[in-house]
Design a protein around this nucleic acid. Structure first.
Lengths: 154, 154
DNA sequence: TCACAGATGTTATATTGTATCGGCAGCGGC
DNA sequence: GCCGCTGCCGATACAATATAACATCTGTGA
């Protein structure tokens, strides 16, 4: 597996990295966006836009419409601050927003735990296979539904 | 890319293969299921359950609820007669229901054209990468959103 | 005939996602 | 200051996707 020296942020470090990334795209880091990012990052598992809306509503002490959350999540995905997990209709914070991978998600069907791996050689193979069929592949979606080590009886 | 001698069915041949596959699983091949399969196979592109419901309603001359279609599509997916395209919330008929692949979908974001490739070595690599993270991977989801040769300006 | 199981019908509801409009805050030009 | 522009957000409605609960039908075997 390919390896490199990127950093996996957490807590304030992650938040800062996210803010830097977003502002470097010419977008604003508003209170609302910070709240949405906090809420998203606080989840261990992929969270639906509605889960995030609920969490933000709680933290803000007022009702936040899903609508607003969608707008912000879309922005985040575009800026690489978050990823959409297609097979779960959900979103997950990107722990290293500063570097761009075609990442691979492993989602446990039992407990929902999700880990992601960045195997650039593997995703490159997928791109290449797509190119072989005449497709350009800006966005490979590689997700694996299965069972994690804890849930797998083994 | 790995190759083997499976057959790509179409028309009546496909329908027969589907029926044989389903009955060999101990399930019934009813008129309703045949109608749903026909409708699904008649689409060039991935079709939503509601699209299929509409098509079946037309062919049957009476309203078929999405509900019934979902039940049957789930059955089809379980029996390998159809695949769910996660990133499109849609379904597509499997042209070779008798053999089991971890297939890879290439979906054109512009025209919706979808082709699938069966690259067992590639999907094996994905399984292996998942196993390396402690995951068992009964269901790899490999989908590539991009542009097909016709839509890519090139 | 009766009981039962599987398939389908019917209706309702839950979840996810989009469209539209209007308000408001910031900001630069005048 | 005042105006008009732009980006962000609130609010509502609506569309699309998915599931749940229960009724009905139909064939099969006791």
């Amino acid at each position: 597996m390919s390896r490199h020296d990127h950093q996996l942020h957490e807590g304030d470090s992650l938040k800062e990295a996210a803010r830097d990334r977003l502002t470097s795209e010419g977008e604003q880091w508003t209170d609302m966006r910070a709240a949405v990012f906090d809420a998203l990052a606080s989840f261990e598992k992929p969270a639906s836009a509605y889960d995030v809306a609920e969490a933000v509503s709680k933290s803000e002490g007022r009702r936040i419409a899903a609508n607003s959350v969608y707008r912000i999540l879309d922005l985040f995905v575009g800026a690489n601050l978050a990823r959409r997990v297609e097979s779960a209709n959900a979103y997950i914070a990107n722990r290293h927003p500063e570097c761009l991978h075609d990442c691979i998600f492993l989602i446990c069907d039992d407990c929902g735990q999700t880990v992601h791996i960045d195997d650039d050689s593997l995703s490159a193979s997928v791109r290449k296979a797509a190119a072989g069929a005449g497709f350009s592949a800006p966005r490979p979606v590689i997700e694996v539904r299965g069972k994690c080590g804890d849930c797998e009886p083994n």
